[in-house]
Design a protein around this nucleic acid. Structure first.
Lengths: 246, 246
DNA sequence: CGGAAACTTGAAACCTTTCAAGAGTCGTGG
DNA sequence: CCACGACTCTTGAAAGGTTTCAAGTTTCCG
């Protein structure tokens, strides 16, 4: 029942970095039209994964830097005990895979939380591409840098009280969604309570309770996986002035 | 009483990357003799700081990547509440400053825990230097990558039980000291209990108690700031097989 | 040597987890 | 279209680990 001319259509509608709707948040952001064109030819495009599929696994050979086109992903790692931690998450336009830079092997696993498409800058191309397009070099540094500071923020958040952690998570998610042109108010979660917990260092029960509590405070509405942010300012106040020794 | 010919002597004894004793752990690690020579000329050398001095402060303009020659430093950040977190620490041969890559401004403050000397690759040089010395590009990526995975490990450690956190900290410190040719057994701490606590997400009292407890288990000897690691394997077992649902 | 800062130690308080059971949601198939 | 089973989420009560508060002790540095 699928049209037989599938491949031709795909070719015709070929998405390049130039016409990708994420060009102002993804790699092209800091690059000239010409630079983008240059990169676009070497980027492998439109891989598609289903919920639960791995983009890569802990221990895998580093194959390249990935840019998410659509969908969300989580980064997870196991410690020596086999405990699971979620060390990060990714939205459309965000880059992942940097955890493979240190050793040529990935330190974390990345998996799709829903149907997901992504592009890839192959590892072998990175060096040469950076030499040809110096601005790409700078952009990549900017992106690893952001990944780093995001992890720092994540660490700091994970040290706070449970309510602050959940509030901080919602705000971060909301802001990152907004930056990507998606609604930062009507949020459709792709994370389970368990995922949120593992990301924040809480149990799923605690996440559930806090979400309830935020709802009863009138800051959000929670319906299973949909969260409506009602009062972003008050949510922020939870993080800004709750505990400082006034 | 200091010799007047101070400057001449310094010039004569000029430390370059080539004769720096950290060349096998610092940037030169992956580079050819010729490449190192090239870099060495552009690296600013031998800045000296005293305990408590800042290498840079949160919000400062990004000036470059720093390599510690001697001494230790801690990275700290403040959240919106003014709470302090220690997000990392650095030993001789380690690179820091990557938290300034994302925004041109540093997301953390770095400060010396003791008298400290360091070298600097100025920000303006990084791009051109990477273009001239492609291996440097790869090395820098390797280093940010390691910084990233170190932070991931740090996050995971900070989610575990108090005893495991302290044990993990000691092991990490020990391993990193060993890698740099320093003793990983006789450790002279430059961190206060408060610092260790802020790094691990514990209070100083808890750190003190756990250290005592590790001592009474015969795993370490603690005398104020000197720690002697007596049984590294048992210390590791604390992290590896304590909590897994056997 | 003296004072400030860092560290130790104890007991009570507090927050989050754990354990347990029930309710809701989703997808599949009758 | 409803039923079933699996999975996810909610809710409660008790347990547990870490923090907090408080008071000493030691160490460091001028």
């Amino acid at each position: 029942m699928t049209p037989p001319a599938n491949r031709e259509i795909k070719t015709k509608l070929q998405v390049t970095c130039q016409n990708c709707n994420l060009s102002d948040v993804c790699i092209p952001r800091g690059l000239s039209h010409k630079d983008v064109e240059r990169i676009s030819n070497l980027v492998t495009r439109k891989k598609i994964l289903q919920k639960g599929d791995f983009l890569y696994r802990q221990g895998d050979q580093f194959r390249g830097i990935l840019a998410i086109k659509a969908g969300t992903a989580k980064l997870l790692a196991l410690d020596l005990d086999g405990n699971e931690y979620i060390t990060g998450y990714f939205l459309p336009g965000e880059l992942l895979g940097f955890d493979g830079l240190a050793n040529e092997r990935h330190a974390c696993s990345a998996l799709a939380l829903e149907t997901l498409t992504y592009c890839e800058i192959p590892a072998e191309q990175i060096d040469t591409l950076c030499l040809e397009v110096p601005n790409l070099l700078r952009e990549l540094f900017r992106h690893v840098g952001r990944t780093l500071t995001t992890e720092t923020d994540h660490f700091m958040l994970s040290q706070r009280g449970a309510e602050e952690r959940v509030a901080g998570f919602l705000l971060d998610l909301s802001d990152r969604l907004s930056q990507r042109g998606l609604s930062g108010v009507e949020i459709k979660l792709t994370f389970s309570r368990h995922d949120i917990g593992k990301y924040l260092g809480l149990t799923l029960e605690t996440v559930s309770r806090i979400l309830k509590s935020l709802e009863s405070m009138g800051l959000v509405t929670v319906n299973a996986k949909s969260i409506h942010i009602l009062d972003k300012d008050k949510l922020r106040n939870l993080l800004a002035s709750e505990n400082d020794g006034g």
